[in-house]
């Protein structure tokens, strides 16, 4: 990895795999929480609509 990075232009930062994984993990966690919350919200919207139209 360091050999590859030594050929990079000076404005490029070396590839930071730890940062890459951290961002991937943090986005995946956020997406999981949001999808879970939406599933619950859609369930309750459906119930509320059923009560209105009952």
């Amino acid at each position: 990895m360091t050999d590859e990075n030594s050929n990079l232009p000076p404005d490029r930062e070396p590839f930071d795999e730890a940062e890459y994984r951290r961002r991937q993990r943090s986005r995946a966690n956020m997406m999981a929480w949001m999808l879970g919350a939406l599933a619950i919200l859609f369930f309750f919207i459906t119930i509320a609509k059923m009560e209105i139209f009952a």
Partner: peptide, 16 residues
């Protein structure tokens, strides 16, 4: 400014 691309690999956007 922080570089977005590290070599050929783009960093995923931070949710913040």
């Amino acid at each position: 400014a922080q570089s977005l691309t590290h070599g050929e690999t783009a960093l995923p956007a931070d949710w913040r």
